[in-house]
Design a protein around this nucleic acid. Sequence first.
DNA 1: ACCTGAACACCGTTCAAGT
DNA 2: ACCTGAACACCGTTCAAGT
Lengths: 266, 266
Amino acid sequence: MATGSRTVPPRSSVWLSERKTTKRKGDQQPVGLDHLKIVAATMRLLDAEGLSGFSMRRLAAELGVTAMSVYWYVETKDHLLELALDAAMGEIALPIEAVGPVGAVGPVEGLEHAPAEPRDWHEQLRQLASEYRRVLARHPWLSALLGEYLNIGPNAVSFQSAALAVMRNSGLPDDRITSALALVYQFVYGFGTIEGRFTARCRAAGATQEELFHEMMGAVEDRMEFDEARKIMEARGGTTVQEMQDRDFTFALDLAIAGIEALRER
Amino acid sequence: MATGSRTVPPRSSVWLSERKTTKRKGDQQPVGLDHLKIVAATMRLLDAEGLSGFSMRRLAAELGVTAMSVYWYVETKDHLLELALDAAMGEIALPIEAVGPVGAVGPVEGLEHAPAEPRDWHEQLRQLASEYRRVLARHPWLSALLGEYLNIGPNAVSFQSAALAVMRNSGLPDDRITSALALVYQFVYGFGTIEGRFTARCRAAGATQEELFHEMMGAVEDRMEFDEARKIMEARGGTTVQEMQDRDFTFALDLAIAGIEALRER
DNA sequence: ACCTGAACACCGTTCAAGT
DNA sequence: ACCTGAACACCGTTCAAGT
């Protein structure tokens, strides 16, 4: 991907640069306009063509500009992709209740261990998880970028803050919260990755989800002792692939929540 | 990555080809030798230089051969990467007890719902999870390939069979098993992805895990309402990054198992 | 301050040709 | 059956030059 990265890397991340890079026009107002347009066009291209179909030259063409113009606004292709990554993270709708406590000016006295209703954090966790899943599935390139870059942009940080705030209401002891977060967060990441890649693959092949699914099952079936497995697969239920995925996702989340509830007692 | 994939794709996966592609020398024995050497060199290169550092031309140079020779053995770069992917999946050690039942000639009468000791499937699940994690962390390129390709090679299928066999012993009803599997499997995938990328990034930057970790925390810290979060992070425990990761991983798995145990009752 | 053109050092892959 | 060389259509990025 980043072919030039074996030479001296210019900057390891946009977010680790000294300058916050909000460019200003004669110290008046942030330009942003072209910057925003570039990121928006990048995301459009990524959605349409995938990560492998994206190039700085294609982007420039899309913007009706010469290949190298973009480099005035953006240091490198990697930085641009990091910006697109964080923009996508910004599409995750955060539960307002979750943002509140952490974003507050300071810890509210006596409310730090306020006994949040279980329903509250259950629902908030479910919302965050399904939002994250939705964004991953909508932008199949997102998962690869999350694996490639650091994901410490402003929107990513807000998301992680919200997730942390929700999990703090689970009642788990402090030293278990990152674990529980990892379980849910990484599960959704993995789930959304597969889902996104699968839909992208379907679109690329011009096939429905069902067609591709059965082709895969067929390919696996005859190379495997499938007597037991087939039973499981059939018990999976749901008529469409989408329904199966929704069921799997929902119940997996139930399992994680049940696990948190169970270990909270001990 | 696959720049040529926007034209007519030659074959969407090695494993979906008609021919099983075990080449034979005059119908005598499988050659395999060069085929194996190519995949081995591919993995060596991927481990050393990462996915972005890998190219067919570099590989050919590594093999002391001209750029196009490899194409006699392998249809395309994507196919070669799929072979490397499955070879890596083959490094996952499977619990023998798990492979047994599924690999058996047929379902053993009366033993289909044999009451496996909880300890058994707990331990087997933990072993599979930590093996998978280990392989993902050792080969940081593996995660990206898993996201890119179908992962239906022979070793991948064996692994999935084993995972299914283990989960069948959990006592969950049949229609919940794929969900439980998704929870654990995708969690480990996500966890191993982050871990692998992080170690790769450290090596590339020539920094220790602790150095990079603190740099990241520093970058996030000042852009965030970190009062609450810091407390969690410190409660995380462990003196090294590795210890933190091990703790998080182990307890997250405990959570998943506890969730399965809890929902099995209902 | 913003954009361009030519150039460099790479890619994956095709294809005709060698042995 | 196996390997090569030249070529095609691409990359990301540098750099000197334009306005």
